[in-house]
Amino acid sequence: MIVGDLSRRELGSRLAGTGLGLRFGPFNLTIRSDLTSFASLARSLYAPYPLPEAGEMTDFHVGIRRPRGMRRWLRRQASFTIDGQSPFAPYTVEHAFPALEWGINWCVATRAHHLLMLHSAGVERNGRAILFPASPGDGKSTLCTALIHSGWRLMSDEFGLVRPEDGMLLPLPRLIPLKNESIDVIRRFRPEAIIGPAFLETRKGTVAHVRPPLESIRRMHEPARPRWFVFPRWIANAPLTLEPMAKSQAFLMVATNAFNYEVLDETAFRLVADLVGSCDCYSLSYSDLDEAVAALDELSRATDV
């Protein structure tokens, strides 16, 4: 069963009551909300996501609701909650949806330490994945969105979830938050992409969420073998370059960008060393998405030979 199978009334009732169960890759969430605007967006953007089976464990109990106490009467606000606690200052109610999405990311980043969490987007084709570790502003979400609308499967836009037992990459095909100019870039690149409303003047500028293609959501339990590390950098008007990178440099960039490298200690060192050792590593500079997608298609084809 998927969210889209629920009637508007049933969805609202779950959000306001015991919570809406949702499956995102290896995690099960329960979301509660008393905001009607949130329910409407959730119904639209979460429609293809599966509900957990009865009796399955919930990893995160989250909520987005009006704050308690006097504050709720002074301004129209929304608080993100995890296990009933509010770790962040309230958001304006118009930003409730991105606030929940950021909050879910925060839950994963701070709690899922049974996995190595690289700060990286990832896509897959033919069972092999490209990881795109990058800092904010380097264009990994934009590039990732372009690729998943060009024949690649979304593994994640934000988390490279590596299973310590076998080094496989686990999918986490959540909504992709595009920011500022990237929103129009993707609208032009793939007009058919499903993009939610633009939230103006959030803490991260203007944000709009891309819903991954259905194939990526349907295959959210299918891991992939990491095959390439590509370190992207969007540079205005720059010609495309895709150049091999020294593995020692790649190691340092992957390790320093990981969410929990220090937490996992030696396990993280071993995993990152094994990953970098078994992957081809490249730096990519680009300004044109078509060129970047073509170059990565060619890279994967060349390695097929």
Partner: peptide
């Protein structure tokens, strides 16, 4: 120590 060498660079984990 755990060692990983690539070219002339040694990455070393100190437990």
């Amino acid at each position: 120590l755990r060692w990983q060498q690539w070219d002339e660079v040694y990455l070393v984990y100190q437990a």
